[in-house]
C-alpha cells in the first residue's frame, strides 16, 4: 500500500510541477527565453492568497482569484518593462535580466513580508479520505490538484489549437516576422502568453502552498527550477510534453525520496533528466530541428 501512497503523492507533486511547467513552456515557446522569474511569480501568488485569507479574512476562492489577477498583471508588467526592450538583444542578456527580476521579486517579498516562514492554511479543507478500509488515505487537496492540472492541460491544448488567439500564439512562436505580416499583433500575443503563464503560476503557487504549507520569499525558486527541468524533460515548447514531464518528475522525486535517500532526492531527479536528455537530446516529446548550413 505504501507504494500506492507514494505514487499518489508523486502524481500530486507532479501535477503542481506540470502546471508551472506549462507556463514555462508557453513563455519559452513564444519568447524563446528562460524566464527564471517564473518561480518567483509562484511565490507572489502564494503570498497574495495568504494575505487575502489570513489578514483580510476572505474566503479561499476570493483569495485564489486575487492571486491569479495580481500575478497576471505582474507577468504582463514584467514583460513590458524588462523583457520587451530586449527583444532584439542576445539571449544571454534576456536571461540575466530575468535573473535580475527574480532577485527583485524575492527581495521585495523579503521587505514586505519579512524573512520568517508563514504557515499557509490550505485552500481545500476537509479531512483525508480513507480508501481500502483506511489502508490508504488521499488528502482532498491532492484530488483538487490533480483535477485542476488535467483541466488546465485540456483547456490549454484546446485554446492553442482551436481558438484564434491560440493560433496567433503558435504563429508568433514559429516565426515572428511572418506572423506580423499576416496581421497578427505580436506584442499583444506575447503579453497574452505572459498573462496566461503567470496566471497559471499563481494557481500553482496556491496549490503548492496548500500541499506544503510553508511560505517564504524563496519558496518559488526550487519548484521553479524543477518545473523548468520538467519542461525540458518533456521537450520544451510542447504542452503535452510539459504535462508528462511534470508528472514523471514528481513521481520520480517522491519515489527516490521514499526508496533511496531523501538527501539524494534532487540528485536522482537531475540524474534521470541527464540520462533522458542523453538518449533523447530534445526531450521526450520535443521536435528535432535539423541544422541548416
Amino acid at each position: 500500500m505504501s507504494f500506492l501512497n507514494h505514487l499518489i503523492n508523486g502524481i500530486s507533486l507532479g501535477s503542481i510541477y506540470a502546471i508551472i511547467a506549462l507556463g514555462y513552456t508557453m513563455v519559452y515557446g513564444i519568447a524563446k527565453m528562460l524566464n527564471f522569474a517564473h518561480g518567483d511569480v509562484i511565490m507572489v501568488g502564494g503570498y497574495m492568497c495568504f494575505c487575502a485569507t489570513t489578514y483580510l479574512g476572505w474566503p479561499a476562492p476570493a483569495g485564489i482569484l486575487l492571486a491569479v489577477v495580481v500575478c497576471t498583471v505582474l507577468g504582463v508588467v514584467i514583460e513590458r518593462l524588462a523583457y520587451k526592450p530586449l527583444r532584439m538583444a542576445p539571449a544571454l542578456a534576456v536571461l540575466i535580466t530575468a535573473i535580475g527580476v527574480s532577485y527583485f521579486l524575492q527581495n521585495a517579498a523579503l521587505l514586505i513580508w519579512g524573512s520568517s516562514t508563514k504557515s499557509f492554511t490550505s485552500v481545500v479543507g476537509g479531512s483525508p479520505i480513507p480508501l481500502f478500509g483506511g489502508q490508504l488515505t488521499i488528502a482532498p487537496v491532492t484530488i483538487v490538484t490533480v483535477v485542476t492540472c488535467i483541466i488546465i492541460m485540456v483547456v490549454l491544448t484546446l485554446f492553442t489549437n482551436k481558438s484564434k488567439a491560440g493560433t496567433a500564439m503558435r504563429a508568433v512562436s514559429e516565426d515572428k516576422g511572418a506572423a506580423q505580416l499576416m496581421g497578427i499583433n505580436v506584442n499583444t500575443t506575447i503579453s497574452l502568453t505572459f498573462a496566461i503563464g503567470s496566471g497559471l503560476a499563481a494557481i500553482a503557487g496556491v496549490l503548492l502552498c496548500s500541499a506544503y504549507p510553508t511560505l517564504m520569499p524563496t519558496t518559488g525558486s526550487m519548484p521553479g527550477i524543477k518545473a523548468f527541468t520538467a519542461a525540458v524533460f518533456g521537450g520544451i515548447g510542447s504542452i503535452p510534453g510539459a504535462f508528462i514531464g511534470g508528472i514523471l518528475l514528481g513521481v520520480i522525486e517522491i519515489f527516490a525520496g521514499a526508496y533511496i535517500s531523501t538527501q539524494l532526492q534532487n540528485a536522482i531527479v537531475f540524474a534521470v533528466l541527464i540520462i533522458v536528455l542523453l538518449v533523447k537530446p530534445d526531450g521526450l516529446l520535443g521536435k528535432r530541428v535539423s541544422e541548416k548550413v
Binding site: 519559452y28 527550477i225 523548468f228 541527464i274 536528455l277 537530446p281
Partner: peptide
C-alpha cells in the same frame, strides 16, 4: 538551452 539545463543539473548533483 538543453546544455544549460544539464550543467545546472550537474551543479545540483
Amino acid at each position: 538551452d538543453y546544455l544549460a539545463i544539464v550543467t545546472l543539473a550537474f551543479g545540483e548533483i
